[in-house]
Design a protein around this nucleic acid. Structure first.
Lengths: 230, 230
DNA sequence: TACATTTGCGTATAATTAACGCAAACTACA
DNA sequence: TGTAGTTTGCGTTAATTATACGCAAATGTA
């Protein structure tokens, strides 16, 4: 009377990068059959003896060579039982961040292309990947407001104006530069470096670092990071 | 060269109820082998042609007869590949709320007992269900502060003091009764009824209703529900 | 030297949160 | 019938936080 379960389980990754004041996502080109090609989120089936997060790491390593700075489970997509037309596949989606400022992705092979896409220039993707991506974007937006994950999209040392632009572009909001700076600095989670920006226009700007240790200490004491805008 | 995937996929449900100023969770007793019995979260394997959320509803219906007022995916547990000692099972956990104020759960059979447990009197559960439950509790706590799901734990018509107690007990915080009332009322998402509480002590209290329509209208306009305490 | 540009610090005002006072409306009981 | 006990419902004030700006400092460039 045992009714054998015939459901496959996959992982998919939404990898975000921030570069030149724009948010990007990493896509790969997949071949279906002999002619059809589709851009899709990197991912694939989970192996029998690897954890879900290991599966994501492995798939990303096979298909790209990005260095993740943050990764978190997003959602499990399994309500549309025909999301993959060939078999029933349930997908556990993870979203991740990288410092894309100076990043080379794996060279293209004939079989597979890998490419950064601007968030507002996403093509029609395979399966339900467009809606998965939408969910990831909305999670990224809200997470950005209550956890300091913006730093994971920036280089180790960054300008205040970069951080500010990151928030503006991703959250698609105007923001008062001076109040933003005041607020972030008041938290005491940034460290000033001795270095200055190499940019040659306007007053030279200090480079800052995110002090994760200090942040964790504060969290212990009940601190709560929050960035809100009107 | 196809390596057949041998992973099962299950759903588990964390059902919360609020009764007599205490938070409860619904557990069932499972039999392992001939003698071992363990309390566990309701749940089971997903069928080939049902969606994940349908699977949760079905399992809950088979094992209990609770009427859900809210349900949402919590997390997918699949990093510990030995979480079930018999097979590799990945579990998609959902948490749900019910109005437990006047609720009969399904009568016990010999095979299976169903019971409400106070949140601070949870026994040692099967598999990794204790840690799943912990994650659900912490999600419930944070969700309570930024979405009006507290009403889903109360009867249709409730006293302000009930709502207040619900927040106090679940969040384990003191809270100024008067400021809490002021804040909630200022949102304009509650409706006063003509009725009064049947409680015979102190000044008679009005019964209130949550106006979900009004709430949704406000959300459209950019409203954001939030309850914070020191 | 004047100008454009961007950084970094400050201040005034509005809005919100936190802390508390107290009368009203009931029951219970002497 | 009146007094004590209890809970509700509405208020006021002080402290804190958010918002909206002003402006000088430090560079490169014309």
């Amino acid at each position: 009377m045992e009714n054998l379960q015939n459901i496959r389980i996959a992982v998919d990754a939404i990898v975000f990068g921030y570069k030149n004041n724009d948010l990007y996502v990493l896509l790969i080109e997949q071949q279906f059959g002999t002619s059809e090609k589709y851009w899709a989120l990197p991912g694939g089936l989970v192996q029998n003896s690897e954890s879900l997060s290991d599966a994501v790491i492995r798939e990303l390593h096979e298909e790209t060579n990005v260095q993740l700075t943050f990764m978190e489970q997003l959602y499990t997509f399994g309500d549309d039982i025909h999301r993959d037309s060939r078999n029933r596949v349930i997908s556990v989606a993870y979203y991740a961040l990288v410092d894309a400022s100076n990043l080379e992705i794996k060279a293209d092979t004939d079989a597979e292309r890998v490419q950064w896409f601007k968030i507002d220039e996403i093509p029609s993707l395979a399966f339900d990947h467009n809606s998965i991506l939408q969910k990831a974007i909305s999670r990224l937006k809200s997470k950005l407001t209550y956890e300091p994950i913006g730093f994971d999209l920036l280089p180790e040392e960054f300008l205040f104006s970069d951080l500010e632009n990151l928030y503006c572009t991703i959250l698609e909001k105007e923001i008062d530069r001076r109040n933003f700076r005041k607020k972030i600095l008041s938290y005491g989670i940034l460290e000033e470096t001795e270095k200055f920006s190499p940019i040659k226009t306007g007053r030279p700007a200090k480079l800052f670092k995110f002090n994760k240790l200090k942040y964790n200490e504060l969290i212990e004491k009940g601190f709560h990071f929050e960035i809100k805008f009107a």
